[in-house]
Amino acid sequence: MVVKIGGAKAVDPAGAVGDVAHLAANGRRVVVVHGGSTVVDETIERLGMEPEYVESASGVTGRFTDAETMEAFTMAMAGKLNTELTALFREAGVDAVGLSGVDGGLLSGPRKSAVRVIEGGKKKIRRGEHSGRIESVNADLLSGLLADGYTPVVSPPMEGREGDGGVTPVNTDADRAAAAVAGALGADLVLLTDVAGVYADPDDPDTLIESAATPDELDAVEDAAEGFMGKKVMAAKEALSGGSGRVIVADANVRDPIVAALGGAGTAIERSVLGDADGDDAEQAETEGETA
Rank of each mutant, 00 (worst) to 15 (best):
D256S: 15
H130N: 14
V137E: 05
D256I: 01
K4Q: 01
A24W: 05
A57N: 01
G93S: 14
T267A: 02
V198T: 02
N138G: 08
L47N: 12
V117P: 05
P13N: 05
D140N: 03
A260D: 15
D164L: 11
I209N: 03
A14H: 11
A114Q: 15
V273A: 01
G165W: 04
T168L: 13
V31R: 12
E135R: 13
L185Y: 13
P156R: 05
F228P: 02
E84T: 12
H34F: 12
V32G: 02
E129Y: 01
M77Y: 03
A87M: 15
G27H: 09
A179R: 04
T61E: 09
L146P: 05
A250I: 04
G120N: 13
V11I: 13
K4N: 00
S37G: 15
G79F: 07
G197K: 06
S241K: 03
E50R: 14
K232M: 03
R246I: 06
A239R: 08
A285D: 00
E119F: 03
T193H: 06
T74H: 05
E91L: 15
D103W: 11
M234A: 08
L240Y: 06
S113G: 01
A139I: 00
V3S: 07
A184V: 13
A260C: 11
T168G: 09
T207C: 02
E71Y: 12
V273E: 00
A220W: 02
E270L: 12
A235G: 03
E91P: 04
M229I: 12
D251M: 02
A250C: 06
E135V: 10
A292H: 07
E91D: 15
S155N: 15
V20Y: 00
S100Q: 04
V190M: 08
A277M: 14
R271L: 14
L81R: 03
G197E: 07
T151E: 09
E238P: 01
G109Y: 06
D164W: 14
I125R: 10
S155I: 09
E283D: 14
R133D: 07
L81K: 04
A177F: 10
T151M: 10
A25D: 12
D194K: 13
V97Y: 03
L107F: 13
R255N: 11
T43D: 08
L47D: 07
P257Y: 04
G166F: 12
A260P: 08
A292Q: 07
V233L: 08
R127H: 09
R29W: 07
T43V: 15
D194G: 11
K9Q: 06
A10P: 05
K122I: 06
E222A: 06
P202Y: 08
E238A: 12
A260I: 11
A14L: 11
H130P: 00
A239G: 11
D103L: 11
N82I: 10
E217D: 02
K4D: 00
D281I: 10
G62D: 08
